[in-house]
C-alpha cells in the first residue's frame, strides 16, 4: 500500500485506538489494582486478582465454559458443514434465498430471539404441552435453566457463523472433483474424508474460531436460558462489574478470557500457516489471514 493511501486508515486507527485498545489497556491495568471499599479502585499494584482467579471455584466455571464452548462449536460444525454444502449445491437461483433464510434470525432482537427459545422450552411451552397431550409424559419436563438449554441457544445463535465461511469455500468448489473421486473408486465416507473435508478446511477453521471465541465469552444466553445454576465465564465477569462491583477482579477474569481467545486464534493461524506452506487450498481461492 502506498504512503498516501495510508491516510485513509487514520479514522479507523483512531476509532480502534480510542474504543478498543484504550479500554482494553484500562482493563489490563485495572486487573493489577486493588478493589476499594465502595467499588472503586485503589492504585496499589497487586497480583491478588489473578491468584484469586485460580481458586478451584472459578476453575470449575472455566472448565464448564470451555466444555460448553467446545461442544457448541462441535455441534455447529457437524450441522453447519452439511448445511453449507447443501446451500452451495442447491440451484444457483435458490442460493440467495437460502442464505437469506440463514440470516432471518438476525432480523430480530437478540434478547427476543433467545427468550423465544425459553418460551418454547418452558413448562407450559409447545413441546411440553404437545408431549403431555400425546400422553407421552405425565408432567412437564424441566428443560429451561439447564446447560442443555444454554447449548441449544448457543447453537441456534452461532450456527450462521459456522455456515457462512464454509459456504464461501464451497461456493468456489469445483464439484467435478467429487465426481472424479467417485470415478476413481471412492464411495461414501472416503469422498467426504479425502476430498470434501480437506478442501472445506479453511472455511471450517474460520467457522470454528468464529463460533468458539464469542461462545466462550457469551453471557446473555447462559443468563436467559441457564438460570442461576449455570454460571459461565462471561456471566461471572458481568457479575463482577455490574453486581459485585469488583472491577479489578472482573478485569483479571476478562484478561484471562482475552488470553484464552487469543490463544485459540493463534493456534488457528499457526495451523493455517503450516497448511499454507504445504501449498494447499490456493485453487479454491480461500484467502488466508
Amino acid at each position: 500500500m502506498g504512503r498516501s493511501s495510508r491516510i485513509f486508515l487514520v479514522p479507523l486507527v483512531t476509532w480502534l485506538g480510542l474504543f478498543l485498545v484504550g479500554p482494553l489497556l484500562m482493563v489490563a491495568v485495572y486487573s493489577f489494582l486493588e478493589r476499594g471499599p465502595y467499588g472503586d479502585v485503589i492504585w496499589q499494584p497487586t497480583l491478588a486478582n489473578y491468584t484469586r482467579a485460580l481458586d478451584p471455584l472459578y476453575l470449575r466455571i472455566y472448565s464448564k465454559s470451555l466444555v460448553l464452548a467446545t461442544s457448541t462449536t462441535a455441534v455447529c460444525a457437524v450441522l453447519g458443514l452439511p448445511l453449507a454444502y447443501t446451500i452451495a449445491t442447491a440451484p444457483k437461483r435458490w442460493q440467495p434465498g437460502l442464505l437469506g433464510l440463514l440470516m432471518v434470525p438476525f432480523l430480530t432482537n437478540f434478547v427476543v430471539r433467545v427468550y423465544a427459545i425459553r418460551l418454547i422450552l418452558a413448562a407450559e411451552g409447545p413441546i411440553n404441552l404437545g408431549l403431555l397431550s400425546l400422553g407421552l409424559i405425565t408432567e412437564p419436563i424441566m428443560m429451561t435453566d439447564s446447560t442443555m438449554a444454554v447449548a441449544l441457544g448457543m447453537v441456534t445463535n452461532y450456527l450462521p457463523f459456522m455456515v457462512l465461511p464454509i459456504y464461501v469455500v464451497f461456493e468456489k468448489f469445483d464439484f467435478a472433483m467429487i465426481e472424479a473421486a467417485k470415478d476413481l473408486g471412492a464411495k461414501g465416507w472416503p469422498v467426504f474424508s479425502r476430498v470434501i473435508l480437506p478442501l472445506a478446511k479453511p472455511g471450517l477453521l474460520s467457522g470454528l474460531s468464529l463460533v468458539f471465541v464469542p461462545v466462550l465469552g457469551e453471557y446473555m444466553i447462559p443468563d436467559l436460558l441457564g438460570g442461576a445454576k449455570t454460571l459461565m465465564l462471561g456471566g461471572l465477569i458481568t457479575e463482577q462489574f455490574l453486581r459485585v462491583r469488583d472491577w479489578p477482579f472482573g478485569s483479571a477474569l476478562a484478561m484471562i478470557l482475552v488470553t484464552a481467545m487469543m490463544f485459540v486464534m493463534w493456534l488457528q493461524h499457526r495451523y493455517r500457516g503450516i497448511e499454507a506452506r504445504r501449498g494447499d487450498g490456493g485453487r479454491i481461492g480461500y484467502s488466508r489471514t
Binding site: A180, A181, D280
Partner: peptide, 20 residues
C-alpha cells in the same frame, strides 16, 4: 452401476484435480 463400480475412468474437462 455406480461410477466407482464401473471399469471406466474419466478425464474431466477442467481436469478436476485435487488441489490439496
Amino acid at each position: 452401476l455406480l461410477p466407482s463400480e464401473r471399469p471406466t475412468n474419466m478425464v474431466f474437462q477442467r481436469y478436476a484435480l485435487f488441489p490439496h
